[in-house]
Amino acid sequence: MTFLFYLLAAVAILTAMMVVLSRNPVGSVIHLVLCFLAIAGHFILLNAQFLAVVHIIVYTGAILVLFLFVIMLLNLNPTNEPRKTPLTRFIALIAGGLLFLVLIASLRGAMEIRAANPFNHEIGLVRDLGKVLFKDFLVPFEISSVLFISAMVGAVLLGKRDPLTKN
């Protein structure tokens, strides 16, 4: 189990870095797919089967396919990439360095967090998860679904052509 954890963690970190470092946008998406699969593997190690599969269906199967779709149609290549002047590079370096410093500083003061409740191996299974979601956390669950609906309505509204400016 520990070996699997380290293997999956290494794959996840390596592919996540490749997402940023890859020059080819399609390559980035593929590494992101691999990274998400590795994270799904972590969920399975925690016995959260439902979460793992939903993670694969929603992120890998739907959202990243749409990413790939858009990238394929954009036909990105190095020639029409925006030029970066030395000044922007310098500013980016400083900003990135500062973010890194903040992350390191926050890690320095971190301490080991212990779980308030003992870990329940059954919590990731569908039956228990459903009961928790629909009994203990019903209101937040419903509120998040309202949020999703408003996001969907917003997307449809943005996608719809304005009848006044049709011509």
């Binding site: 797919v33 439902f50 599969v53 890998t60 199967g61 396919v65």
Partner: peptide, 17 residues
């Protein structure tokens, strides 16, 4: 698997790649 149907579904959704 506890989530057999969803596994089938996940494989279908990856198949498009």
């Amino acid at each position: 698997l506890d989530i057999g149907i969803l596994f089938v579904f996940a494989m279908v959704s990856i198949g498009v790649y």
